[in-house]
Computed example of a mutant assay.
Amino acid sequence: MNLSKEYISLYNEYLKAINDIKKEVKLIRTIQKITIKRKERATQEEILELEDENYMIDEASKGKKVGNKIYNFSNGDVYIGKIIDNKMNGKGIYTFLEGIEYIGEFKDNMKDGSGICKFSNDNEYIGEFKEDTMSGIGQMIYASGNEYIGNWLSGKRNGKGIYKWHDGSIYVGEFKNNKMDGYGECFDLNGNLIYKGQWKNNLANGEGKYIWEDGKWYEGEFLHGKRHGKGTFYLNNELVYEGTWKFDKPSIFNRTLDEIFSFII
């Protein structure tokens, strides 16, 4: 069984949202180059005001907008973008001293909206942010070559998404707190279905079906990634065993066949 049209459609839907963000980021990059070329640097006073968390804006200055400027902060960080009400608001680029770079939308000094964040470990996130955390639709390209595209909540993979390993194998399904959790399907590098069913903590857990090859599969209950509970095993499309399983092995009277044979011997 190959990847269904439903999952291909889902991936393309996510990818369209990501590509739209990339286009926006490209425009911000252009603004950055123009600002640097014009040497539009913030004054020391403007920088000190922005760094001061207790700085109060008077009524006359509320809503004041400052055009794109370069802000070289005292801690080594650099911001290029707009300032509204003495805070980073709108589109801009923030480069941290430790090597992290964010290009995108800001709201009240926080990453909020859509953008791209390149981390110091070479992971790259392209997607939506909410109050400084990855939330919404986003794609993470890991330095390992793995990739996740789908839903995020509070900085973690949450909801429906697609995870692709560098070897080409794919998981499509539900996530919770960064882990495969809920219903999902796993495919090998050729797009053949390996497992479909329930997951918990990155392992098959609950009702599911595991397929080795055509004509050979197990369907039933899983626990912590093992065949455990009631299930059936087929070989050459014929039923070989139907009954209870205990940690990947057929079980009779709550004992595996190996345990039973050891008593006989």
Rank of each mutant, 00 (worst) to 15 (best):
D214L: 07
Y171D: 01
I57G: 04
G81F: 10
K176E: 12
D167Q: 03
M140E: 04
L3T: 09
M88F: 15
M140N: 03
K65I: 12
G206I: 14
K216L: 07
N109C: 11
N109W: 13
F261E: 14
L257Q: 11
L235D: 12
F261M: 12
W152Q: 07
L27C: 02
G182C: 09
G168Q: 07
F233V: 05
E219M: 09
D77W: 11
G182D: 08
D181S: 11
G155R: 04
N237S: 15
M88A: 01
E131N: 15
I31D: 07
Y195G: 00
K230A: 03
A60W: 14
Y241H: 06
G229M: 12
K64E: 11
D122R: 00
G161H: 08
D108V: 06
G173W: 05
D77Q: 08
Q139N: 04
D85M: 05
K23M: 11
I194H: 05
G99D: 12
Q139G: 01
G191T: 00
H224N: 13
E51F: 14
N202V: 00
I18N: 02
A204F: 12
K246M: 09
R41L: 10
F222L: 06
D122T: 03
N54A: 08
K16C: 01
N68K: 05
N205K: 04
L239W: 12
G168M: 12
I57V: 15
N86T: 06
G76P: 11
I103E: 15
K176C: 08
F253P: 01
K249N: 14
W217Y: 15
I31K: 09
G168N: 10
R227T: 01
N237I: 02
S61W: 05
K118T: 13
K196L: 08
S114Y: 15
G113P: 03
K246P: 00
N192M: 11
K82S: 10
N201W: 14
M1W: 13
N123C: 02
K16Q: 05
S4V: 02
I93A: 01
N151W: 10
M56E: 14
V240R: 09
A42W: 15
N177A: 13
D167V: 07
M110W: 08
E98Y: 11
I116C: 00
Y163N: 01
M110T: 09
L97R: 09
D85F: 13
D214R: 08
